[in-house]
Amino acid sequence: MPDVTADGLRVLFCGINPGLTTAATGHHFARPGNRFWPVLHLSRFTPRLLKPAEQGELPSHGLGITNVVARATARADELTTEEYVEGGRLLTARVERLRPRWLAVVGVTAYRAAFGDRKAVVGPQERAIGDSRVWVLPNPSGLNAHWTTATMAEEFGRLRVAAEG
């Protein structure tokens, strides 16, 4: 699954890993019911609701997308601890190279596993990767019932304000 990146992004969003729909289409967060694209728009990162097939427009808004783990699975719980740890190492190298203002990991469980931070919570983290700050966002999967679209948009909006500053 190719990343959508550029140098000097305001925010590099990082999903857990590609789902099967994403892998089949080549578009990040492509599964129907995933709330990433609506939340991105509701939080005013994008001026209109983008479709997954329009992901190439993200860099023009200072945004990009990557994943912690490259392997596609039906569910994130199919990933191993080793895959997360290796993914965290590779992600760190990617962030050091691209130097986004913020790395936004979409999913607190993935962040904890990839970076060995068992106490991490949603929000800005103490950790930085080079000059890039780190923010953990809620997982936009439709399976994440703990967060509504509205509450996710509020959290994404907090990051947007920080990234604009």
Rank of each mutant, 00 (worst) to 15 (best):
D3R: 07
V4K: 09
T5C: 13
G8W: 04
G8K: 07
L9T: 03
L9V: 11
V11W: 01
L12S: 05
L12M: 13
F13M: 11
C14G: 07
I16H: 01
N17M: 06
N17H: 13
P18W: 03
P18M: 06
L20H: 05
L20D: 07
L20A: 13
T21F: 02
A23K: 12
T25N: 09
T25M: 09
G26R: 11
F29R: 04
A30G: 09
N34P: 09
R35E: 08
F36H: 05
F36Y: 05
P38Q: 10
P38M: 09
L40Y: 02
F45E: 01
P47I: 10
R48T: 13
L49T: 12
K51I: 04
P52K: 06
E54H: 06
L58P: 01
P59W: 04
P59Q: 06
S60Y: 02
S60N: 11
H61Y: 15
L63R: 04
I65P: 00
T66W: 00
N67Y: 12
V68D: 00
A70C: 07
R71M: 04
A72K: 07
A72P: 12
T73M: 08
T73I: 05
R75D: 08
A76C: 10
D77L: 03
E78K: 11
E78D: 15
E82A: 15
Y84G: 00
V85E: 09
V85T: 08
E86M: 02
G87P: 01
R89Q: 12
R89H: 08
L90M: 13
L90Y: 03
L91T: 02
L91F: 08
T92V: 04
T92Y: 01
R94S: 04
V95Y: 00
V95G: 00
V95L: 02
R97T: 15
L98H: 10
R99A: 14
R101Q: 14
L103S: 03
A104V: 13
V105N: 00
V106Q: 11
V106E: 10
T109L: 11
T109P: 00
Y111A: 02
A114Y: 01
F115S: 02
G116S: 10
D117E: 15
K119V: 07
K119W: 06
A120Y: 08
V122W: 02
G123W: 11
P124C: 10
P124G: 09
E126I: 14
E126P: 08
R127F: 05
A128C: 13
G130V: 12
L137A: 07
P140G: 07
P140D: 09
S141L: 13
G142H: 08
G142F: 10
G142V: 14
G142S: 14
G142A: 15
N144F: 03
T148E: 02
A150H: 06
M152N: 04
A153P: 02
A153E: 01
L159C: 05
A163L: 09
E164D: 15
E164M: 12
G165R: 15
G165M: 10
